[in-house]
Structure formats: C-alpha cells, structure tokens
Design a protein around this nucleic acid. Structure first.
Lengths: 165, 165
DNA sequence: TCGAGATTGTTCGGATGCGAATAATCTCAG
DNA sequence: CTGAGATTATTCGCATCCGAACAATCTCGA
C-alpha cells in the first residue's frame, strides 16, 4: 500500500477510465476504501504486535474468540472469525501444536468439538491484548471522538445487511 | 458469519470478560467491526459475483487494478491491492495461465515487469464489473446517502494514518 | 425403532499469502 | 568507468484459505 498513487489520484483515474459505464462511484469508494483500511490495519497490527509472538492474524482471532467465549464450539469460532471450517481445522492444529489451546469432544453431542485456552494460551493473551488494544486506540483516534460511535454503527450496519443477503 | 451471537451480544460478552483490564472498548469496536464488515462484504461479493467466473478475491483485485492502469508495473499492483510481491507472482501465474493478462519486460528498466489485460481479460471485466458495482451499491445503501462521503473519508483517514505509521 | 435427512469436523486438492533468500538489473559516488 | 549498494521479480518453505467430498453423529417423523 501507500503506493505510487495517492488515494485521490486512484479515484480520479478510476472515474476517467470508467466514465462511460454509468456506475455508482460513491459506492465504489465505500467498498474500496473499506478493504484498503482493513488491509492496512491488519498488516500494521501483524507487524507491530503479532509478529513478535509468531502469530498470524487468523491465529490471533482464533485465540481472541476462544479467550472471550471458552469453552467454545469450533463452528462458533469460524462464525465469529469469518472464515471456513476447513481453515479453522488447520489453524487449530497449529495452535494446539504450540500448546496455546486444547480440543475436547463434547459429551452432549458427539459431532461437536469444544476449544479452551491452556494456561500458556491465557498468559499469552493477557500479555498481548493490552498492547494490541493500544494500537487499536491509536488507529481509531484519527476519527474524531464524537464520530467513532457513528463510524462503528455504520460498519455494523454494513455487516448485518451483507450477512442477511 | 451471522453466527450464534449477535454483534451486540458479542460486545457485551467482551466488556464483561475484559472489564478489569482498562481497555479502550470504543477503539476495539471500531477495528473489530471494520474487519467483520470487510470480511462479510468480501465473502458476499465472492459468492454472488466472482465465483461464477472462478475468480478469487485477490485475482479480481489484480484484474481490476490492471484494468484501470494498464500497462502497469507489478510493484504497483501489489501496492494498490495491499498484498506482497510474492503473493502477486503466484496470482499473476494463475491469471496469465488462464489467458486474462500478459507479462512483458520493461524496455526502460530490465528489473521491471509490465502487466496488461488481454482482449479476453478486458471482456471479462467489461461484463463483470457492472454486476460487481451493482452489489457495491446495494451494500453502500445501508449507509444514508448524506453519510456515505463521511464514511469513505473516515476509512481513507484510517488507511492513510495506518500506512504512515 | 429405525432410517432418511441434516449437521459437524476433518480431509483433500489446489490457490493464495508471506518473509527471507536469490539473481538480475540499475544507480551513483569516487 | 567501476563496483558497492539499492531495487526488482522470482523462488522457496511453510502457513493459511476455501469448496467439495467424507465419515461420524444426531434428529425426528412414520
């Protein structure tokens, strides 16, 4: 990112190339900036916070969701994190191998697997998340305090609508 | 997504579990909803628009950036798309193999590679992008018209600040 | 009771995705 | 002119990532 072209230059070039197509450029700007922002923030947090612990973004999300909800069913981790069950299986293998969490068959329903953090995993999150949140705070501060709630609300609305489709 | 818990339930559980940690919950809500939104929109667009053409999200981004700027240097594609050069090499191999674009060594600088769409690739984007934009429009419509510019501006600010870090 | 259909986690094959190392090429001080 | 350093795309190894197929398990009407 932060490429040769500024965001403004890119948007100008886009409207120039696609002027004849009768498109909704405002909608294009919304989604395109949504992805740029998510991608930039993700890369930043991976570099500044997660890489020191050798965690990928997805691995961190899995740990975080488990931290909040443990014991948690795997299908719920995938739901909360927004990735597929197949992906989750692989990440759980990695994290279980590193000793951060454990899998356990549910007694009530033989199809389900319950995930919990180990003491090591809990210690990792206790140390990592405050640092993670400090970066979140810095990033969010570019949006004026009074607009942050509106910002989060709009993002929530986009999520809710899209998932309902 | 659209899991067992609503967004509100999740945020309540988070503040309950982490109440003792003195965190910035508003900042947490901003970034967490940023990723949920980006992920939901990406999954939705992949399913409704891209899967019919057998395109991954990243492959589509590569084609789109090339469509706008061709002929374009590979390093710029990676910049605009927000992924690494190593990733780009693989995706370019895939797309070149399917006949959507071509690579060509720069005459001015032997290190650079220029990418252009083939007629087949251009035809694909001519057909695909209007449909893609229609979905973008539907998604953006959940944000009130008068707020869309503010929304895009806030996303731009987040991107700019984060990349500058 | 029982079996067809639904649900779940895993496996499989193939396509991203990245950091580090590498070879080719360019730049520019001396 | 020249060679040390910078820049670029690729390669390599490994960890995601996904859809589809699969086996195990559960549900629930007949």
């Amino acid at each position: 990112m932060a490429g040769q072209h500024t965001l403004a230059e890119t948007e100008r070039q886009v409207s120039e190339r696609l002027a004849h197509m009768n498109l909704d450029f405002q909608a294009m700007a919304v989604t395109s900036n949504l992805f740029r922002a998510a991608s930039a923030v993700r890369n930043h947090l991976e570099r500044t916070v997660l890489s020191a612990s050798g965690l990928s973004w997805t691995a961190f999300v899995v740990l975080w969701v488990t931290w909040i909800w443990e014991p948690i069913e795997t299908r719920q981790i995938a739901d909360e994190g927004g990735f597929s069950k197949a992906t989750l299986t692989g990440v759980l293998n990695t994290l279980e191998g590193r000793g951060f969490l454990t899998r356990e068959k549910s007694k009530d329903d033989g199809r389900l697997v319950l995930v919990s953090l180990t003491a090591k995993g809990r210690k990792l999150m206790d140390g990592l998340f405050p640092e993670f949140n400090k970066q979140e705070q810095k990033i969010s501060s570019v949006v004026a305090e009074k607009n942050q709630t509106l910002f989060a609300d709009m993002l929530r609305a986009v999520t809710a609508f899209t998932e309902a489709q």
